[in-house]
C-alpha cells in the first residue's frame, strides 16, 4: 500500500506537470506529420510511418524518462519534501521503489498513447495489425524502464544536472557498446580488446533491446533472442534499482 501510494502520487505529480503534455502533443504531431512524408515518397509508404513512429516513441519516451527521472529523488531532497515522507512509518527502500514505479507508470501511459497512435496509423495504411510493431514498442518501453532506473540511481546521490549528464552519457554509450566490441575484435591489440570487453560488460547494451528494424522491414524475429533480451533488461533494471536503494539507505539528509 505504501509503495502504491508513493507511486500514484509520483504519477499525479507528472500528470500535473505541463511539460509532459507539451512533449506528448509534440510527439503526436510528429507522428501525424509522418503521413505527409508518405504522400511525397515513392514506395516505402508504411515503412516510413513505422520508422518515424518508433523513433518518436523512443526519443520522446527517453526525454520524459531522463528529465523526470533525474529529479525523482534529488528534487525531494532539495525541496525538503522528503522529510515528512521518510519519517512516516515506511522503509527508505519503499520510497525509492514507489518513486520508480510512479515514473514507470507515467511512461507506460505516455508510451501507450503514442503507440496507439502509431498502431492505429499503421492499421489504417496496411489494414492488418502488426505484432512485430507491438513487440518493438514493448522493447522500447523496457529500454525506457532501464534508462529511468539509471536516472534514479544517479538521482539518489547527485544533483539533477549531474544526473542528466551521467544518464545521457550512459544512454549514448549504451547504444554504442555493441559497436565497441566489434571495433575491438576487428582492430585492437590484447589490451584494447580487454578494455573494450570490460567496458562492454559494464555498460548496459541498449542496442540489444532494439527490435525496430524487424518491425519496420518485416524481418523475422527470433523468439529466443527476444527472450534473452527481455531477461537482460529485467536483470539490469533490478540491479540498478537495488543499487539506488542501497545508496539511498545510507544517505544523510542535512
Amino acid at each position: 500500500m505504501t509503495v502504491a501510494a508513493i507511486a500514484l502520487n509520483t504519477f499525479r505529480e507528472a500528470v500535473r506537470d505541463r511539460i509532459l503534455y507539451a512533449i506528448l502533443i509534440f510527439a503526436l504531431v510528429m507522428l501525424a506529420g509522418s503521413t505527409i512524408l508518405v504522400t511525397i515518397s515513392v514506395g516505402g509508404e508504411v515503412k516510413i510511418i513505422k520508422d518515424l513512429g518508433l523513433a518518436c516513441i523512443s526519443i520522446f519516451g527517453t526525454l520524459i524518462a531522463i528529465f523526470l527521472g533525474i529529479g525523482l529523488v534529488s528534487k525531494e531532497i532539495e525541496r525538503r519534501t522528503l522529510y515528512t515522507i521518510i519519517t512516516k512509518p515506511i522503509h527508505r527502500y519503499q520510497f525509492i521503489l514507489g518513486k520508480y514505479l510512479g515514473l514507470v507508470l507515467t511512461l507506460l501511459v505516455n508510451v501507450a498513447v503514442m503507440a496507439l497512435g502509431l498502431l492505429g496509423l499503421a492499421y489504417l495504411w496496411e489494414g492488418v495489425s502488426s505484432v512485430r510493431l507491438f513487440l518493438a514498442v514493448l522493447f522500447i518501453f523496457l529500454e525506457l524502464m532501464l534508462v529511468t532506473a539509471l536516472a534514479l540511481l544517479f538521482s539518489a546521490f547527485s544533483s539533477p544536472t549531474l544526473s542528466a549528464i551521467f544518464t545521457l552519457s550512459l544512454f549514448v554509450a549504451g547504444h554504442l557498446s555493441g559497436d565497441l566490441r566489434l571495433f575491438a575484435a576487428r582492430f585492437g591489440g590484447a589490451v584494447t580488446k580487454l578494455s573494450a570487453e570490460t567496458l562492454y560488460f559494464l555498460l548496459p547494451n541498449l542496442s540489444r533491446l532494439n527490435f525496430k528494424d524487424q518491425a519496420v522491414h518485416g524481418f523475422g524475429v527470433d523468439g529466443g533472442s527476444m527472450g534473452l533480451s527481455f531477461l537482460y533488461a529485467i536483470f539490469h533494471i533490478a540491479a540498478l534499482v537495488l543499487a539506488a536503494m542501497a545508496i539511498f539507505e545510507r544517505r544523510d539528509f542535512k
Binding site: 502520487n9 499525479r12 505529480e13 500535473r16 506537470d17 525538503r80 519534501t81 522529510y83 515528512t84 519519517t87
Partner: peptide
Amino acid sequence: PEQPSFYDY
C-alpha cells in the same frame, strides 16, 4: 520539520 515543505501541486 523546521519550515516544512510539501508537494505544492
